[in-house]
Amino acid sequence: MVRSPVHIAALIAASLACSAHADELVPYTIVGDSIPQSLTGAPGDAARGRALVLARTTTCILCHSGPFPETRFQGDLAPDLTGAGNRWSASQLRLRLVDASRFNAETIMPSYYRNDGLVRVGRNFAGKPILSAAEIEDIVAFLATLRD
């Protein structure tokens, strides 16, 4: 599973070049408890990431709360996101978004960048990850800014 960064870069380049099938995930390399490389090869946009975290469609805010005074309804099923950037590096946050079940098989946090091994996925979602690589990067960039 561990591939050389060069190989990954090549794959990303290839997928950009021929606009790979939407259902295909960008391959990534896990190092320790992290994914060091950006899934898109570029840093995400923290402002877009903040909007994504607050959008109910991405589901973050349904379970998590955080330093979002303008958002009235936040979940309390999962840890408060305040200080997430202190607790985790961007690389660690990336893997936790991509596949949190890797750390705890029983977690209720969905694997946001995964499209296999799932049961009865709805017609409109089949074969797709919950978030795109770019959305993951935006959210990672935002969470990394959450420092106490």
Binding site: L62, G75, D76, L77, S101, I108, P110, V119, G122, K128
Partner: peptide
């Protein structure tokens, strides 16, 4: 008990393990 769907959650994950908590503003 079966996890399902793109969010990969089972009924039990919310209704046995997390009742009384809030999904956004709504109590589980």
């Amino acid at each position: 008990m079966q996890r399902e769907g793109q969010l990969n959650l089972a009924c039990t994950n919310c209704h046995d393990d997390n009742f009384d908590k809030r999904l956004a503003g709504a109590p589980i």
